[in-house]
Design a protein around this nucleic acid. Structure first.
Lengths: 223, 223
DNA sequence: TAGATTGTTAATCGATTAACAATC
DNA sequence: TAGATTGTTAATCGATTAACAATC
């Protein structure tokens, strides 16, 4: 690791937030250093993978000692772009949208809910978790005024594509899609998809056979 | 494909539910057949991948014609174990748990909410979406009487591990974990994890660089 | 120094993709 | 038959893992 500084593999990027959460926990307990072995246990992966993943960030460990928790935490936050807040807009305040808006976990982790939008006149104007629901048409002004970085789609599937397009037009470049629709957007836009029924169907597959990889996360086996 | 009938790759299993949803849509529109090319467009993948994935199910296509929608839909449902319902229990009826209980999408896709459990005396006894919230301690009887197959963890992270263990003790073999905790369980138990903050953090990473794979699902690039 | 643990190499494994013969 | 499209092969790519020299 020296020339042509690291292109971090996709699989590694997906694990960094897991390590980050472990490090936050360790920092809370004032644990000064952590070995790849112990971090691997916490994260549910193996130690070789931890060392390889961390090596993409730089040579931040000390042989014979391990990794300095605070230092690694800082470097990882920086790499993930988490040294600043990224306000999100939730589009669609049905069951899921409301739950997401009320869910404190986003704000805690640097993703405050900056805006809520819907098209239903009964919902526009109401307040959820201290944020007033605005009409979808106001998205461009909201994105600009609140500095919205990420759009979360919690609309019915029929509306998802058009809402996504409006988000992109409004200047949003990152979308988390909770609707079951496959979005077709400019490949410049980052899209991640969370599909609850798909997760259950995958569990159903492995249940039926009861011989597949037993412990899977969205990005593969946990251990 | 003939000897030693197919061990379906994990990556393929994760895509089958996406194809399934496309097929349902096609069946609704009474489209009789579909080519790998068109199905690939709908699913947001490439045609070679579709053909390879479908070939693990068997040789269900017709050269020069494509795949019979209804027939493929049936075969895929069968392979995914979706020819029967799999009742789920949601543990933890906070914001997320309530939203999940109210979310009709599960029942629609063969995963009816058979039970809700919590430990909060203020919640136990209340009714959500027509299901009465029971105490966590009643889990074994609920699993038995309602034929619960899948446990959904929507508790605070501190409770997740112990709730998961109770689910396993009660006979549940498949768990969908919405808490940010990494679960340590018998490897026989299938676990999938949905971590909303992790998804946002991954988006944050790619936003910062704006040079990564642009369009990602939980299981990799969408297209 | 002796023990511990990293960082990196290289082997292996699994997933993707292009290409095309088979065949409807 | 001619055109279309599958099913499969083989090449390529990316991810995982064990092993161990480097070094604290």
């Amino acid at each position: 690791m020296s020339e042509q500084e690291r292109r971090i593999p996709e699989a590694t990027v997906a694990r960094l937030p897991v390590y980050l959460r472990c490090l936050v926990e360790l920092a809370d307990e004032r644990t000064p250093t952590i070995s790849s072995e112990r971090l691997a246990d916490m994260a549910g992966v193996n130690a070789a993978k931890v060392r390889k993943d961390l090596s993409y960030l730089g040579s931040y460990g000390t042989r014979g000692v391990g990794y300095d928790v605070e230092f690694l935490l800082y470097q990882m936050s920086r790499e993930l772009g988490l040294t600043q807040d990224w306000p999100v807009v939730v589009a669609g305040v049905g069951n899921l949208g409301q739950a997401l808006a009320n869910y404190g976990g986003f704000t805690d982790r640097g993703f405050p809910v900056g805006a809520l939008v819907d098209v239903d006149p009964d919902k526009v104007g109401t307040s959820i978790a201290g944020v007033i629901v605005r009409h979808l048409d106001e998205l461009p002004e909201l994105v600009a005024s609140k500095g919205i970085a990420i759009g979360i789609i919690a609309t019915p599937p029929t509306a998802a594509q058009s809402v996504a397009e409006k988000m992109v037009e409004a200047g949003i470049g990152s979308i988390l899609n909770f609707s079951p629709s496959v979005l077709g957007l400019d490949p410049e836009v980052s899209v991640r998809k969370v599909d609850l029924a798909v997760e259950l169907q995958i569990l159903s597959f492995y249940r039926r056979r009861a011989d597949g990889p037993a412990s899977l996360g969205p990005d593969g086996p946990q251990r």
